[in-house]
Simulated scan of single mutants.
Amino acid sequence: MHDVIRDVAISIACRDQNVFLVRNEDVWKWPNEDALKQCHAISLLNSSIPELPEGLECPHLDFLLMVCKDTLIETNIPEKFFSRIKKLKDVDMARMWLFSLPSSIDLLVNLQILCLHQYMLGDIAIIGKLKNLEILSIWGPDIKTLPEELEELYMGNCFIEWEVEGPNCERSNASLDELMHLPRLTTLEIEEIGKLYKPT
């Protein structure tokens, strides 16, 4: 699912004149301020991700893809990074080490798709503030809390010790029943290590 979303988004972005595209590069520079303000899509694919600007000013940006070349480097996303790109509908970030999401992500009121792949994350409850988010795709992180406001949830490469609920049992791990009662959920796919769970 994730690769399909990414390929379609990149192909659409590349047809747009106002695209900033970096592919397989170790050294590159952000475009100037005027060029960024005209961008509709940014794709940083299999490239080194330098220090990100405190606030990326791209008022027309619809699509943002950041796939880090080196998975061993921690990436720092400034707290105000998303504060000036509120039109974003699709954010795809992969091969990045993060320990939290920046608080400004809750300003992305138009965000519909969020892909977080090969992250080191804990509590992502802040995503619950994204009222228009329809698809959340997570691959391989350590997630403590999931937002309820989702229609599609894809989880991959994870190890989950599912527990059976009972009237007299105390649980310390996740229960599948918790996921099945997310109020807006229409599609659920969980790929545990060595297994694939797709409820009907």
Rank of each mutant, 00 (worst) to 15 (best):
M1Q: 05
M1I: 05
M1C: 04
H2S: 10
D3R: 00
D3W: 01
D3H: 02
V4E: 07
V4Y: 03
V4K: 08
I5R: 02
I5Y: 03
I5V: 08
R6N: 02
R6D: 04
R6S: 04
D7I: 06
A9M: 09
I10P: 01
I10C: 04
S11R: 14
A13K: 03
D16V: 03
D16G: 05
V19E: 05
V19P: 04
R23C: 13
R23W: 12
D26W: 12
W28N: 08
W28G: 05
N32P: 03
E33W: 06
L36D: 02
K37P: 00
C39A: 15
H40L: 09
H40D: 05
A41N: 06
L44I: 15
L45V: 14
L45A: 00
N46V: 00
S48Y: 08
S48A: 09
I49P: 03
E54C: 08
E54F: 09
L56T: 01
L56Q: 01
E57Y: 13
E57P: 02
P59W: 09
L61E: 04
D62L: 14
F63L: 10
M66P: 02
V67L: 12
C68Q: 15
C68A: 15
C68R: 03
C68D: 09
T71V: 09
T71Y: 11
L72C: 07
I73W: 02
E74I: 11
E74C: 10
E74V: 12
T75Q: 13
N76P: 03
N76Y: 13
P78I: 07
E79C: 05
K80S: 11
F82L: 09
K86Q: 13
K87W: 03
L88D: 01
K89Y: 03
D90K: 07
D90V: 09
V91T: 04
V91W: 01
M93F: 14
A94C: 13
A94H: 03
R95T: 07
R95A: 09
M96K: 05
L98T: 05
P102W: 02
S103P: 03
S103A: 15
I105Y: 02
I105K: 00
D106C: 11
L108C: 07
V109D: 07
L111F: 02
L111Q: 04
I113P: 01
L114T: 00
H117E: 15
H117I: 08
M120D: 12
M120V: 12
M120N: 13
L121E: 09
L121H: 07
D123E: 15
